[in-house]
Design a protein around this nucleic acid. Structure first.
Lengths: 349, 349
DNA sequence: TCACGTTGAGAAAACCTTTTCCCAACCGCG
DNA sequence: CGCGGTTGGGAAAAGGTTTTCTCAACGTGA
């Protein structure tokens, strides 16, 4: 027998049987030694451990899964192929699971029912322990039916089935943060420019906007709804600022439905010689850093904490898989305001 | 026996054994019937198939994998957590593999060696058939060692190990497309504004830029290297256009290293009253649609075809897993020019 | 009738690990 | 010396599928 020195990468994985025979014990004993189970002398256990170490033994996850009926694998379903929402979310999910030794199948289903079916079946066949469904819109379903699946399902940033568990961002809370910030900064005429009325979050944020203004006894302007683009930001500024009303009647703050709109608003204001944040404060939504940091001045924006949301979803799934019960319903996670320069500084500051 | 009508979702998966006993045959026969193997009467085969169908039988992938030593699973390693490069690439990979019944483990390793190790080991334990490594930079390695892995590895949009197979975009070719386009459009004084010198692609594109200009006997200006931001685009315009040289000596076209720089360039030009594309044509790189479509005018840009690159990588891995040999080396995939309005139209058009 | 080939289907091994018995040896105690 | 209890470790089943081998029945030609 040649003593192989460095544990050179074996061409074929070493099995428990090989460890056992190298250590001169049965596979049963070897298994128990490595898992800290059973009874044996400390010396035997240590010898087996060393042998396994030396041979570079790693248990075959497939065999373990087959037996334990637990694959340490979950599926992540998304239809947000190119979007920027799913990536931080996925990172959070993955982050929460990797420490538990759980790997994540990424399944992009677009909006294709057939593709969704295909992926779900593949995941079921592979005996995933659970599924996380995520999308690009809070108020839409994925094109798959996950209702009676015999494995736990968690929804994140997408519309959950009834009786399921879903995590979403607290958009109303996020909107409050933004508008309250304007109030604190002494802004009095706060406008709201947002996306299409077909999005549920548009109404949720608009409601919060109205509430905060009312609470502060400030005038409530009807929100301007358009679409999620810079161009719409430009147009909204034209509508808000190009009238012949005096300076004192025009907005001194604009709360925007996303960062692209805010970018358009800031650019349009600058083109009109209106100072940001001097004359008008601007706050965006999404905190899309690459946009928020490129605006002039850098954009204050509401962050939905998507990565944290993904983490929570991952942990919730883990606990469900572990057999912990959990009440169905929607959990809203708080947003946070990332203050940069576009909103201005406190009067006294 | 009650005839259960609709195949209600069973609480526990139905096994081959159950199918066999329901059809009155042995598991061996059942297996062969469903896989089109072995010899039996057509009637027997059909009866078994129907029984399986009726019971909603789906083979346990874990058991199959254990036996076949093939898990129909691959790992996708990335360190591009928030970036926009990995998403289209992943979509392409997933797309190429889903039809072969192969699922993809998404592993985000950041730039963390420990995390990389962790993920690679988890994937190896789960007996993935192969690994695709992808990153956010073509000229950097991932923080993991995939050299002697006993399973096939493909690199995509990241620096491959020697003797490995890698797919990257043909950046020089992409740059040629852009500069040639300017030449065709009759531009004569073409500038190049790009990212930091620490990126290999910056030099590759600059070389192509010089070559094309030389081929067309046009003056070659030294490329301006800075960083990948809008702010740098602004500054570059200041350097190029704010001198006291006459209009006839200033650039009439700017080829930018990415879309953000191009965005900055266009904005800065507009602020100076210089018309785009009338006075100066602009072409960007990356074709990041959300930026390219928001510039005024919409930005012509080089698309790296990342989704196609992902597809190629996926197919290559599949063929490697299938035992097909493949020569090591780097394969460059062509870019394409997406023409919008910022480059101008042909003189006669 | 016998030898032989074909057909249809089942038994069992294999994949790798975990876990539940089970058993032999040993110890102490009466 | 006999007995119950403990200790160290092994045999075997289980998990679900695939594949090889085996075998009985049957038909055919001599």
């Amino acid at each position: 027998m040649v003593s192989d020195a460095a544990p050179a990468p074996a061409k074929t994985p070493v099995t428990l049987r090989e460890v056992a025979s190298a250590a001169g014990v049965s596979v049963a004993t070897a298994s128990k030694a490595l898992n800290g189970q059973g009874r044996m002398t400390a010396r035997t256990r240590e010898r087996i451990r060393e042998t396994a170490q030396r041979l570079g033994f790693r248990p075959n996850s497939l065999a373990q899964s087959l037996l334990r009926k637990r694959s340490f694998t979950v599926g992540l379903l998304t239809n947000d192929t190119y979007g920027r929402f799913s990536l931080p979310l996925m990172a959070g999910v993955s982050d929460a699971l990797v420490d538990a030794g759980v790997s994540v199948f990424l399944c992009n289903v677009e909006d294709d029912q057939r593709l969704g079916q295909l992926h779900v079946e593949a995941m079921l066949d592979k005996r995933v322990d659970g599924i996380i469904a995520t999308g690009k819109r809070i108020d839409r379903h994925l094109p798959v039916d996950l209702a009676n699946l015999r494995i736990p399902v968690i929804y994140a940033f997408t519309q959950p089935d009834p009786d399921a568990i879903g995590f979403v961002s607290d958009d109303a809370g996020g909107a409050r943060l933004a508008v309250e910030q304007f109030c604190v900064l002494g802004r009095r005429r706060i406008a709201h420019v947002s996306g299409p009325a077909s999005f549920a979050v548009v109404h949720e944020r608009a409601r919060a906007y109205r509430e905060v203004l009312t609470e502060h006894s400030l005038p409530v302007a009807e929100p301007l709804l358009g679409h999620w683009s810079e161009a719409w930001g430009h147009e909204a500024v034209a509508r808000l600022f190009d009238g012949k009303a005096g300076r004192g009647e025009k907005p001194d703050a604009v709360f925007c439905g996303n960062d692209q709109i805010a970018r358009g608003v800031i650019d349009a204001l600058r083109e009109r010689g209106i100072g940001v944040p001097g004359d008008v404060g601007v706050i965006g939504f999404d905190n899309w850093e690459i946009v928020a940091e490129a605006t002039r001045p850098p954009l204050t924006s509401v962050d939905m904490n998507l990565s944290a949301l993904g983490r929570e979803a991952g942990l919730a799934l883990l606990s469900l898989v572990g057999g912990q019960p959990a009440a169905p319903g929607i959990r809203k996670l708080p947003c946070r305001l990332v203050v940069r320069q576009s909103c201005g500084r406190p009067p006294g500051g």
